[in-house]
Structure formats: structure tokens, C-alpha cells
Design a binder for these strands. Structure first.
Lengths: 267, 267
DNA sequence: CGTCCAGTTGACACCAATCAATAGAGGTGG
DNA sequence: CCACCTCTATTGATTGGTGTCAACTGGACG
């Protein structure tokens, strides 16, 4: 797949249909996808019938290894994860940060109808994580049976693509301070997309090493940048806690516009 | 949309069904999508029935302007185009280069069922270009009627996402020489994906200014890098002609693996 | 023959990488 | 409870890659 994925269930609207709490865990895919747009009730059954296996991963454990066959898509139920590439020089580039609720590897089902597929990057848990695994061929066939499903996956793909593009802008044309500000603003926005008002502070288990690999910086330089942001009263990150001290200045600095993460986006 | 798009019809396999040449121009979408996988013949009719308007653009003319309503998806029939973002500082980051045959803005149809959509970046023709415009709402409804269509669009999205990810790796962890080498190798690969053997030389209408905005470099520095690549016998770009003088060295330098552009990719 | 624009080259400044080392926090075992 | 260890965070000194500013060149075009 392209290993990227967004938060399909978070579009700011409450779920149109309530599920008994006890059932939710058994229909993770439909739960994630239904709120993005209107999935006909009769199609949900097909989704909920998909065999899903619950599994736990430890921190730093690999969900997907580059170059291996692709067999499962994942729903990250709890914990954080990331997709990354390793370079011959030893460097690492993180491609995506996955938050609880994100879909991982859904796009890969596209080509699941034939050729031997190999992943072109790795995915690993950052914290201890719980995932629901969906068999790729099952998902692939469901894709043909349930017309709305593909539409939802396209929606998710569009959102993930927007995040990738925004990262490209950061890496290509923003300096270290701007990138850092933009990244922590994006995280804040993605974490609260459920409809909650934007929080001024949130928990974040990412070490500076991980963030540096996201932003294409050296850990030392990122550290200096974070200090500067702290001393100028913009942003403070300590012990897994992020404080957006001055959201307005941060957004101006990073040229941050949350529209790309929202439902009503296009293009 | 997310404004990114790949080359759906180029998977190395010949089209399973031959069309009379004269008809091709009237069914651009099905022509582009059918070869990626097997689209049932009975579904093609629905695609071919989509109203498509042919239109020509001049060089530097805008197909999509950031912040405006999104109304059409495009098939780039001839010419080159690019998607880009402009920053408050005046800088520009090119997000995608579109080659003849590429789809532009297809993903946007995902959310075309309701809210007023706005594009989050601009798309403009680099050379004079010919496009087929498809109305977004038409495409959106076709998406629901033709099960295979969404699948093909997902395939295209996965491929486009892979290109974006590869660019992120370049921008984040490769230096100017490596980025440049990687970019021209990728172009070569994308241009010859029709199944032709990889060409050692190809025509490319991109000015150094455009390439610099793709690679996140200043035009002056890119120029120096290109000179160095030329003097070391790796790559020569002159007057719209690219010569891969030493493909093997280039691929080693850029850590280039064309797998991400091919059909059989996953993840 | 002048204009314009892409390409080219040089000098210089600066942002960020690298190398090297220290300090803190959390965990573990004695 | 403390010593020890490891990983993360932090700081300094130095280097180097890339951006910026400023010209100049050369071809395309009218």
C-alpha cells in the first residue's frame, strides 16, 4: 500500500446511527468508516462480517516489514505507530505518524487480486499498540461487493494524501522552526478531530528522535529549535506532554491552515 | 482533491481489449483505467457514457486555482502540468508533475456529494496542454454505479501516494545531488512505463526553476548540482533533452528502486 | 538589434549536520 | 534504598551544504 491513512471516523459529525457499545469491538471497519459519509445500513452487514483479528504489539515491534509480502490491513485501535523508510546511509525518514483510530495499509488491497505484493516501507509501533487485522483478500472482495466501501477508502486516501502533501511543503520550503511548529499543530488537530474543541495541550509519546526523522532534521538541531520555541513562549514539550503556549503565533509562524485535515476539503 | 495522480493505464500489460482508434478519444476514462486491471466490459459502457469535454490550455495557464470550488477532474491527454503550493514568503513548492496520460484531481470526487469543496493547491499547465474534463458530480455518481471504477481509482491513488512518499524521502534525507538524480530517474521511469525499455534519454520541458521548486532547492544551487552531475558523467540536461549518461551510477547515488512506480507494488 | 528569459557563475552568509560530551529520567538489580 | 545502566534530552564547537545577492551569458524571438 502506500501505507498512509487518515482518521476516517472523525469528521466532526456524530455517528448517524448508534451502536450498542458491546458490539463496537466486533465491527471495527464499519465503525471507522461509517461516519465519514452515509454508508447504507444494508452494506454495513457485509463489512461487519469481515473476519477481524485483534492483536497487541509491543513498543518498537514491527507491523509491516519492507520487502515482505503484504497480507493484512490494520486498524490502529490504541497506541501510536509510524511508517518509515531506511536509507543505505543509515538515515531514517518517517513517512506517517498513525494515531489511534487510523487505518494502516488499506490502499494496498487495490492490487491484492494477483501479483505477489511487497511493501515498500516498514511500519512499527511507537508505543504499545492494539490493532485489528483485516485480511487483505477479504477486504479486497468486500471492496467489490460493497460499493460504498471503496468510496470511503477513497475519502481516506484523499485525506492521507493531503497530509503527505503538506509534509512535502514543510520539507521543501519551511525551515526547522516552521516545520516543528507545523508538525505539533497538525498533531493537535488530528487528535481532536472527533469534534472536540482544539486543545491547547495534549499527550504525545514521540521522542525527539522520532520527530526529527519526521521533519528531516538532526535530533540535536531539533532540540535547539524546541528550546528556542520554548524560550519564545510558543511551544513547550516535556515528558510526553505538548503545550501550545501561543497557538496564534504558532499558526502564523507555520502558515498553518487546518482545512486540509477536514472533511470539507477537496483537490 | 489531493491533486495527485499517477498513470493508470501503464502497467506493462497491453490492453486486454482493442478499441478502434477512432473511438479512443471519446472514452478517455475507460481507456485510462481499463488496463490497470480487468474492468468488466459491461461496466465500461457506464464509463464511456460519462460526458467529457475536451479542452486546450496554454503554457502557464491554470487548470485549478487554490481556494476555488472544485468542479472538474482532468485527464491530461497531452502536455505537462504540475500541482503546487505558494507560501506567504513567496516561495513555491511543486507537489506533483503530471505527464501525458495522468489523472488530475480524481480523488476529489470523494467528497463531491455535499459540502462546498475548495482546492488546497493550484494546478497549472507547464507546456501547452490538452485535457479531457470530467464533471465531478458525474464521476461521483459513476463511482457508485460502477464497482470496478472505485477500485481503479484506489489503485491510482496508491501509486500517487507512493510517489509522494518517495519525494518525502528525498526532501527529508537526501542531499541535492541525490534528489536531482532521483528525480530524473523517476521521470524516465514514469515516461516509459507503457512497457517500453527504459530509455537512456528523453525530452523534458521542465526548466531548472520548476525542478528546483520540485526538489526544494534554489535554482542557483540546482544549477551547480547539474553542472557537477554533467562533469562527472552522470547526467546531462540541455535544451529540453535529458541524457542519463550513467544509469547505474545514478541509481546507486539516488538509492533508486523503480518498484514503487510499478503495478506489483503494495503497502 | 534589442529584449527577455533560462541558464550560469561567483562571493558571501547562514542554517543545519556532525562530532563530542554531559546531564536527567526511568528502570533494574543488589 | 542506592548503585548502575540505558535511553532521551541537552549543550558546545566546528564544519559544510545550501540559500541569497549580484552579475553576466546565451539563445529565442520580434
Amino acid at each position: 500500500m502506500s501505507g498512509w491513512s487518515g482518521q476516517p471516523s472523525a469528521d466532526g459529525r456524530p455517528e448517524p446511527v448508534q451502536h450498542p457499545d458491546g458490539l463496537d469491538l466486533h465491527r471495527p471497519l464499519s465503525r471507522r468508516l461509517t461516519s465519514a459519509a452515509h454508508l447504507p445500513v444494508e452494506h454495513r452487514a457485509a463489512l461487519d462480517a469481515l473476519p477481524v483479528r485483534r492483536r497487541a504489539y509491543e513498543a518498537d515491534e514491527e507491523l509491516i516489514q519492507r520487502g515482505t509480502a503484504f497480507t493484512h490491513a490494520f486498524i490502529l485501535e490504541a497506541g501510536w505507530a509510524c511508517a518509515y523508510r531506511t536509507l543505505p546511509s543509515g538515515g531514517r525518514q518517517v513517512l506517517s505518524i498513525y494515531l489511534p483510530g487510523d487505518l494502516i495499509g488499506l490502499l494496498a488491497v487495490t492490487s491484492a487480486d494477483g501479483s505477489g505484493l511487497e511493501t515498500d516501507h516498514s511500519v512499527r509501533a511507537i508505543t504499545a499498540a492494539e490493532v485489528s487485522e483485516v485480511d487483505v483478500s477479504e477486504l479486497s472482495s468486500a471492496l467489490m461487493r460493497v460499493p460504498g466501501l471503496a468510496r470511503h477508502m477513497l475519502w481516506d486516501a484523499a485525506r492521507a494524501g493531503a497530509i503527505l502533501e503538506e509534509r512535502i511543503v514543510s520539507l521543501g520550503r519551511r525551515n526547522a522552526r516552521e516545520r516543528t511548529a507545523h508538525f505539533y499543530l497538525e498533531l493537535s488537530e488530528r487528535l481532536t478531530l472527533g469534534g472536540a474543541p482544539k486543545a491547547k495541550a495534549y499527550d504525545c509519546p514521540l521522542s525527539q528522535y522520532v520527530v526529527a526523522d519526521v521533519l528531516g532534521l538532526s535530533p540535536e538541531h531539533l532540540n535547539r529549535v524546541m528550546r528556542q520555541l520554548r524560550l519564545t513562549g510558543l511551544l513547550c514539550v516535556r515528558r510526553g506532554r505538548v503545550d501550545l503556549l501561543n497557538t496564534e503565533s504558532l499558526e502564523r509562524l507555520a502558515d498553518f491552515d487546518p482545512a486540509y485535515l477536514r472533511t470539507s476539503r477537496a483537490a
